[in-house]
Design a protein around this nucleic acid. Structure first.
Lengths: 131, 131
DNA sequence: CATTGCCGATTACGGACGTAAACTGTTTAC
DNA sequence: GTAAACAGTTTACGTCCGTAATCGGCAATG
């Protein structure tokens, strides 16, 4: 599922507070992004048509629920980003991001732990060649 | 400088082998991406108009040179990616990427070192609040 | 010198996107 | 019950993007 900029905003909101009604989305995003309600409605509609959201009719109104996993979309977007910007080579991408990102102590600790785990896992399968 | 998908491909090539003539770009990218030469020419033209490339007339033909720094574009694209997908919160983005990326021992080592440096730098300015 | 061929410029066109108005049907309040 | 309010659908429109054909100038070649 390929999401556009604006669609990510909508989807992120709905992933966070599911299921949601149109009015909630309009209220939240209209304020945040100064989108007109018409704009939000268009987004929702397109996302449904696209298969990213499903609607469930509750009485007279609809409730929107995400139909795609956030992790899947994130994965897709990440790959696309790495491909586009770093020609598919993820390592420099990561180095760059880590270098240029403000991270809290906590984040740093988590990352370090994660890396340690990965290092240990790989410890057996000596994979040193570049290409 | 905001670059589109296709433009990144062109720019990455030119950053790597500067200065370049149109024919070279056409040859390289036509083969790789099966773009028609017309398509490549359009890309080049748009990039020039956009200010991402400059042309220097050598005799009757032009040589293309990048007019923007790759790092600047990478930074911009990274920020835009993190904003769009993670709502500006970079830490989860990094965690996700690190988690889902195949990294060589070498890459891991580099990352770990980088993180250690960052941890030490931050050691003095206790910033723990989430907010 | 006229033709061909290369190269950059101009024009084209459909689809996606951001943005939003207008239309329609239903519910609710006066 | 009629009008206002609300929610979903349709239509709209300018821009960017991918993709490409065509045009126009200059240079080499016969």
């Amino acid at each position: 599922m390929q999401l556009s900029d604006a669609e990510w905003i909508v989807m992120n909101l709905i992933w966070d507070s599911q299921p949601t009604e149109a009015s909630d989305v309009i209220a939240a995003l209209g304020a945040e992004n100064s989108w007109s309600d018409a704009t939000v409605k268009t987004m929702l509609h397109r996302l449904v048509k696209k298969g990213a959201l499903t609607t469930e009719q509750i009485g007279k109104k609809y409730r929107y629920t995400t139909a795609v996993r956030r992790t899947a979309c994130v994965r897709k977007a990440s790959r696309s980003f790495v491909d586009r910007v770093f020609g598919g080579d993820a390592a420099p991408a990561l180095l760059h991001l880590v270098k240029t990102t403000k991270l809290s102590q906590d984040d740093l600790a988590q990352l370090r732990e994660l890396l340690e785990t990965k290092s240990n896992l790989k410890d057996t399968q000596k994979k040193g060649s570049k290409e």
